[in-house]
Amino acid sequence: MNKKQWVKFSLLMGVSLVGASSVAGTAFAETGNAERGQIAAATCTACHQANGSGMNIPGGESWPRLAGLNADYIVKQLHDFKQGRRQNATMMPFASMLNDQQIVDVAAYYSQMPVTPAQGGDDADAVLLQRGEQLAERGDWDAYIVSCKSCHGPGGTGVGGQFPGIASQHAGYISAQLHAWQDDERSNDPQHLMGAIAKRMSDEDIQAVSAWYAAQDVSDQTGSAEEETTQ
């Protein structure tokens, strides 16, 4: 599809899908254009990979999966990096390279990619995973840790543009973000909603829930899953 056809197609989609699908709605409602986004994202692939999978880097700084994240959420994060509301030395220069148009374009591009599986957390034993599942699905009210599910949605696949999907995200990245909130290094969440929860978690809680969500494969990779089972 060339650029003109794509625009026409998105307009059609925009009209016919009004109210029918929030995913398509957010992707097309903005002026974001995935084809232009792909061009603007050329420098991103070094870390976030061509398929948007990112990479879990044990002992180092993990690169988050962007594939399939909500477009509005990506837009907000890129503006936050650019404006310094979210601090990260690695990511900051790349966000700063993008203008407003490119930001909505790369957001459209990554949001439309199929979710990829996560890595990390393999060292978690059954007891730790069980703790992770409890925090994710039911919370620990004695410590006033509200279940992750109550904001990140059933299965942790995200809710609207404000509550990102965290299932199938790399364990190293989830853990790094929770620690960043604890240490006041990340504080760009609306109404301090995430920080309030993160600060009540122990190191073990963080390890547990990161491993559990990394293991919740919500990726769209039926092919590779088949491959694994036949091996």
Binding site: P154, V159, G160
Partner: peptide
Amino acid sequence: GHYENGEYVF
């Protein structure tokens, strides 16, 4: 409130 994938969240 808010539904996501047919399940209520809020």
